[in-house]
């Protein structure tokens, strides 16, 4: 069995496309994106994507940026 590695990603939607969010999400899903949360106030989709398909997401019309999700945040005490 082949295990597909999923990457957690954040996808920023171009402000001009926020009223057509459904469309954009549909196109992203066609590229393998799995949506877990849509943050409307900031125009960000949180989800995951097979590693091999990562590059395709930024080419989707209405997407302004795609970044791998970070989990290395810490309180800022020395």
């Amino acid at each position: 069995m082949t295990v597909t590695k999923l990457l957690a990603v954040n996808v920023k939607i171009d402000g001009d496309y926020l009223d057509r969010l459904h469309e954009v999400v549909g196109k992203l899903q066609n590229e393998g994106f799995v949506l877990s949360e849509s943050l409307d106030a900031i125009g960000v989709l949180i989800g995951s994507v097979p590693a091999a398909a990562l590059g395709k997401l930024s080419a989707v019309q209405g997407v302004s940026a795609v970044e791998k999700s970070r989990s290395d945040y810490h309180t800022q005490e020395p």
């Binding site: 954040n10 949360e37 106030a41 999700s69």
Partner: peptide, 26 residues
């Protein structure tokens, strides 16, 4: 410690609630 998911969701919540200032000591 934290993740993008928590922080972005938190920013979204603060903006939805019309907070004028968001402070992130992270």
């Amino acid at each position: 410690s934290g993740t993008d998911r928590s922080i972005l969701t938190g920013i979204n919540w603060a903006l939805t609630n019309k907070c004028r200032v968001i402070s992130m000591s992270l």
